[in-house]
Design a protein around this nucleic acid. Structure first.
Lengths: 337, 337
DNA sequence: CTGTTAGCGCATTCAA
DNA sequence: TTGAATGCGCTAACAG
C-alpha cells in the first residue's frame, strides 16, 4: 500500500478539517458548494485516492463481492464471471474471485480467503461441497449458489440460488431427437459436478416417458476437453444413434475422437452437447446443444446479492430458461424431418 | 460486513489480551505453545475470521493483487487469469479482477476501482492506454503489463512487463508455411489491440526476408468469433494460398465462413491461427497455430509483482518462448513435405 | 512470555 | 455550515 495522500493531507491543503473533506468528497449537501469545489480540486491536485480498507473498517462494508468458480479457463464459467463482474461494477462493487479447480480442499481454502476479505456477499458455482458447509464458512454474509443441485434444502433466508433449467433443456433436446428418428440413446458424463447427474436423469426420465427404456451410460475420464478419447471406442461398440454429452467441450472432444475412429458425425452417429459455448457454432459439424444464459446468471447472482445486502433477506431462487439450439451434429441422414 | 467476532471476543473467552490472541493466531514463537493451542481452539469455537480491512489498515498492505483483462470470456485471457489466481493464492494473496471490454473509459474506471481497493500490485493485459497513463492511475503500487507492445518506454523500476515472443512465433509459422510451398500470403487482423500490429509486422518482415514482397491485408470487423464472415468473401476473391489470422478465434470463425462459401480448408486454402486455445486441437480441420504460454504468463506476472513488492524494485521484462503447432489447417494438398 | 498503549485512514456522532 | 472527538479491528512498539 505504501504511503499515500490521505484525507488529512487534503484537509491541510485546503485549510479545513478532515471531516469536512470526507463529507465534501462524497457530495454531502451540508457542505457549501464553494468549499466542495475547492476541496475537490485540491484532492485531484494531490492525486488523492480514498483508502477502502479504512472506509470498510468503519462502514462495515467492503463494497466487494466474491466469486468462486471451478475453472476460469472454462468458457461457461468465464461467461458467468463476465456477467458477474459487469453487473457488480455497474453498482460500484469490486469482485474478488477464486477458483476451486473442483478440489474440495482448494475450495475450502478459497472460501476462507474470500471470507477474510470480508466480501459483502458471494456467489459460488456448482460446488462439490454441501450448501450448509459453504454457508458455515462464509457466514454471515449472503451467499448465492450458481447452478447448484439442491439449492433449497436448509435455506434460511441467506442462501440464494440461481440456475438454468437444465431439466427442461434436456427434455427439449430429447424430444427433438426422438422426433427426428433417434431411438438408441447414450449419455456421457464428465467430471463429478452436480449438474452431471441432473442432466442424465432428466434425459432418462424424458426417454422413459416416451417409452424408451434404455439409456446407455458412459463416463469420460478427466477434464472436459481431452478425455473423450478414452470412451470413444467403447461408445462406438455400443452403436447408439445419438450420444448426449454432459457439455459442449465433451461433445466437441468426442466428435474429434470419433473422427479418429473414422466414424462420421452425424451421418453415422449424432452427438449433442450442452451449454452452447461460443465455439459450438463454428465446429464441424456445428453442434446441436442447449444454450445456457451464463452471463445472465452471473448478472442475476449479483442482483440477488445486492438485494439481500440491502433488505437483509435473500430473494427466492431463480431458474432461468434455456434454449434448444439445433445444428448439424444431430442431423442424421434419413432422420431429417 | 455485519457484526462478527473480533480479536477481543476471542481474548475475553480465553482470558488473555487482544495482542496475545493476535500473536498466537499468527504463530508468533513468543507465545507459549500451550496458550497458542488454547487460543486457537477458542477462535475456532467462536468461528473467528480475521478482518482483513483492519489488518490492511495497519499493515499498509492488502495482500491483494489486481488483474485487469479485456474479456473474461476469451480463452486466452481466461488462462492468464487462471495462472494469475493460482500463483497468487499459493502466496496467500487474493485477486480482484476487472474487465475493460477493450473500452478505454471502462478501463480507466476499472483501474480506479482497483486503485481504491489498494491492491498491493496489479497486472494489466494489453491495454489500449499508454503505459504512462496506467502508471499514473495506480501509482505508486507496482504494475506489470501483460502482452504489451512497448513495455519499456518510461519504465522507472515500477513498470514490469511479461509477454510472449509473438515475433519469433510468427516467424516460425511463416517459415513453416514457406517450406510447405505457400507463396501468396494474407493476414487478417482482429480488433484494435496492440499485439495485432505486432503480429502483422512480424509476418511481413519475415516474408520480406524470404523475398515475398506482398502480404494481402484484411480487417475483420468486431469481436473475435463472429466477424470473420464479413471478410471471407473478399479474402476468397484475393485467392491467397494461406491466411494468417490474428488469433485462433478469428481463424476458426474464418474456416467456418469459408465452408459456407464452399471453400475447403486446407485443400483450397490454408488458414492459421495464433494462441493455441484449447479448441484449436479439436476443430476440423485441426488448427495450425502458435502456442502461447498463457497460464505461465499469469503466473510470472504474480511472481514479478511479489518480487517488486518485497524488494521495492521491479524485475526486468520477460519474454516467454512460444511454440509452433503444425496441424491440419496448413496441410495443403501437394504442399506436404 | 504476556499486557498496555498507540495509531492505521476514515465516517460519524455531537457541539459550536 | 463546519470542527473536535470517537471508534471500526487489528498490529507493533514498549514495558513489565
Amino acid at each position: 500500500m505504501t504511503r499515500r495522500v490521505t484525507l488529512v493531507d487534503v484537509a491541510r491543503a485546503t485549510g479545513v478539517s478532515a471531516a469536512t473533506v470526507s463529507r465534501a468528497l462524497r457530495g454531502d449537501p451540508q457542505i457549501s458548494l464553494r468549499t466542495q469545489e475547492r476541496i475537490r480540486e485540491a484532492a485531484a491536485e494531490l492525486d488523492y485516492v480514498p483508502n477502502n480498507a479504512a472506509r470498510s473498517l468503519v462502514l462495515r462494508s467492503t463494497r466487494t463481492l466474491g466469486l468462486l468458480i471451478p475453472d476460469t479457463t472454462d468458457p461457461v464459467h468465464g461467461q458467468v464471471a463476465a456477467g458477474f463482474e459487469r453487473e457488480a461494477s455497474v453498482h460500484g462493487y469490486s469482485v474478488v474471485f477464486s477458483s476451486s479447480w473442483t478440489d474440495p480442499a482448494q475450495e475450502r481454502a478459497s472460501l476462507a480467503l474470500l471470507a477474510s476479505q470480508r466480501v459483502d456477499g458471494m456467489a459460488v458455482w456448482g460446488s462439490l461441497e454441501r450448501p450448509r458447509d459453504i454457508l458455515a464458512a462464509v457466514r454471515p454474509s449472503p451467499v448465492v449458489l450458481i447452478a447448484a443441485e439442491n439449492p433449497l434444502e436448509g435455506t434460511e433466508g441467506t442462501l440464494g440460488s440461481i440456475a438454468a433449467d437444465d431439466r427442461a433443456g434436456m427434455a427439449a433436446l430429447v424430444r427433438h431427437l426422438l422426433a427426428s428418428g433417434h431411438r438408441r440413446f447414450a449419455y456421457v458424463s464428465g467430471p463429478g459436478v452436480t449438474s452431471n447427474r441432473l442432466r442424465r436423469e432428466a434425459a432418462a426420465s424424458m426417454l422413459a416417458e416416451a417409452g424408451v427404456r434404455r439409456l446407455l451410460s458412459f463416463t469420460a475420464g478427466g477434464a472436459g476437453w481431452l478425455r473423450a478419447r478414452d470412451v470413444a471406442a467403447r461408445i462406438v461398440r455400443a452403436r447408439p444413434d445419438v450420444v448426449l454429452c454432459y457439455d459442449d467441450k465433451l461433445a466437441l472432444g468426442l466428435i474429434d475422437a470419433l473422427r479418429r475412429l473414422d466414424v462420421v458425425v452425424p451421418d453415422e452417429m449424432s452427438v449433442t452437447g450442452f451449454d452452447d459455448i461460443p465455439f459450438a457454432a463454428f465446429s464441424r459439424p456445428r453442434l446441436t446443444t442447449v444454450a445456457q444464459p451464463a452471463e445472465e446468471m452471473g448478472r442475476r447472482a449479483v442482483r440477488m446479492l445486492l438485494a439481500s445486502i440491502q433488505d437483509g433477506t435473500m430473494p427466492p431462487p431463480e431458474v432461468l430458461p434455456v434454449q434448444l439450439v439445433v445444428r448439424e451434429s444431430s442431423m442424421r441422414r434419413g432422420h431429417l424431418p
